[in-house]
C-alpha cells in the first residue's frame, strides 16, 4: 500500500527497543529473521539473550523461509482501544513457522470465519509507516 495513504496510521507501533528493534529492522528490509543459536542451531522467538536449549549466548539472526501454518486465533469484535474501532472484527493469528517458532500476526486475505488450524500461509511485508514494517501473512497457494 502506498505510504501516503498511511500518513494517518493510528494503530500501536512496536516501540523499537532492545532485540525487538533488531527484529523489526529486518522486517523493514523485507526480511523475516529469527534468532538462531550459533552453537546448537535452535531457532527461537521471541528474542532471548541465551539459548534455552544449550545455554549459549551466541546467536545469529537467521532468515526464515517465511512459510508457516495457522496455529490458533481469536476474532476480536470489541475495540479495546478507540483506534481499533474501524478495524473490528479482526483476527490476531498465531502462525507456526516451518522453522518451528511461532509469532503473532494478521492474515491479509483470509476472512476470520474462513480460518482453519493448519492453513498454510506465507509472509508479506506491510510498510505501515515510513519507519515501521509489520510482517503479515497471506494464504499460501501451494505446500
Amino acid at each position: 500500500m502506498a505510504l501516503e495513504t498511511r500518513s494517518e496510521y493510528k494503530l500501536p507501533l512496536p516501540p523499537m527497543r532492545g532485540p525487538a528493534a533488531d527484529f523489526y529492522k529486518f522486517c523493514k528490509a523485507h526480511e523475516l529473521r529469527f534468532q538462531r543459536c550459533a552453537e546448537c542451531g535452535t531457532w527461537r522467538h521471541i528474542p532471548r539473550d541465551v539459548c534455552a536449549k544449550c545455554g549459549s549466548f551466541k546467536f545469529e539472526w537467521a532468515r526464515s523461509s517465511g512459510k508457516g501454518k495457522v496455529f490458533s486465533w481469536t476474532v476480536t469484535a470489541q475495540p479495546f482501544l478507540p483506534q481499533f474501532a474501524p478495524m473490528v472484527p479482526y483476527a490476531p493469528v498465531i502462525i507456526e513457522m516451518d522453522e518451528g517458532v511461532r509469532m503473532l500476526s494478521w492474515l491479509t486475505d483470509v476472512k476470520p470465519e474462513d480460518l482453519q488450524l493448519g492453513m498454510r500461509v506465507a509472509v508479506v511485508f506491510d510498510d505501515v509507516t515510513p519507519e515501521v514494517t509489520l510482517p503479515k501473512f497471506k494464504r499460501a497457494v501451494s505446500q
Partner: peptide
C-alpha cells in the same frame, strides 16, 4: 509489558480475553 508492546499490540492483541482466546480456540 515487553512481550505485549513489542509483539502483540501492533496486531491489536491488547486484552487478556484475546490472549486466552488463542488457547481456547485451539
Amino acid at each position: 509489558g515487553g512481550t505485549i508492546g513489542d509483539y502483540y499490540m501492533p496486531y491489536g492483541a491488547i486484552a487478556p480475553v484475546q490472549w486466552y482466546a488463542w488457547i481456547a480456540t485451539r
